[in-house]
Amino acid sequence: MRLAAIADIHGNAAALEAVLADIAAQGIAPDSIVNLGDCLSGPLEAGRTADILVPLDLPTVRGNHDRYLIEHEAGKMHSWEADAFRQLTPAHLDWLRALPVSRVWREEVFLCHATPADDQLYWMERIEPNGVVGLKPRAEIEELADGISQSLILCGHSHLPRAVRLSDGRLLVNPGSVGCPAYDDDTPYYHRVEAGTPMASYAICERQGGDWSVSFRLVPYDHMSQSRLAGRNGRASWEAGLATGWLG
């Protein structure tokens, strides 16, 4: 079994197109791509991203930013959602409403956005009070996987490509972010997540015998066009992150 996992597109249609082309070049068909959510929010091209994604009918789970788009009132949205909402049609929003919070793909792969019970909690990362982003202890990571029988577990949310082998052999994989390589947040403490590269990230997972392997792929694309778009839309942190993979 071989599949491609994408996550955290955040309305970056140019990055999505580059990743889909790279996936096809690896010989992976669209019916073997899974999408881990946070699809549209951001100051880029939410509508065009939705127009690409919806017809593909990929197995997709709902991320926290997808949820914000359908739960928050139009005048009370965060900036990422407000920027995207103006571009979305009722059909786009209906597609978001229909997404599950988790799902099992082909009986062997568990999909969620962040963790099974909380779409805003990093699964593998811990934030220190001083803002340092590090790896959680394995026991904490494994506790969040209780009750999941699948041998491959896929999540997104942190935008950082990472894999952790659990003590029972299950593999937990975050493919990184297709469209947003750097951001900051204040929960639970102020911190920055910076990939250090503007390239679009995704993962290829393959089972050979009883074991899963993972390859992370970083795909170049015209990231400066998206950086300039974010700048024109008044989002300086996005402009910097898309240009370099750093916030400054």
Rank of each mutant, 00 (worst) to 15 (best):
G156W: 01
H113T: 14
N174D: 15
S215W: 01
I153T: 05
F110T: 01
G179R: 00
A195I: 06
V164G: 12
D185H: 15
A117E: 12
E125I: 00
D118H: 12
G131K: 03
Q208V: 10
I204R: 06
S215V: 13
N174Y: 07
V178Q: 01
F216S: 04
Y190E: 13
A200C: 03
V132G: 00
D186Y: 06
C180E: 13
G176M: 14
C112P: 05
M199E: 13
A139S: 14
P198W: 08
I141R: 07
E107K: 14
S158F: 09
D118I: 02
L154G: 00
A182Y: 07
Q120M: 08
I204Y: 05
A203K: 08
L166G: 13
I148L: 14
E143M: 08
S167Y: 04
R217W: 00
G156V: 07
S167G: 11
I148A: 08
L121M: 12
S158W: 07
Q150L: 09
V178W: 05
P161T: 08
R138T: 13
R192E: 14
S177K: 05
G209R: 06
G169N: 10
Q120K: 08
E194F: 01
S149Q: 12
E125Q: 08
V219R: 03
H113R: 10
V133R: 14
C112I: 07
A203Q: 10
R162F: 08
L152F: 07
D119C: 01
D185L: 11
P198C: 05
S158N: 09
Y202F: 15
W212C: 03
R170W: 11
E108M: 07
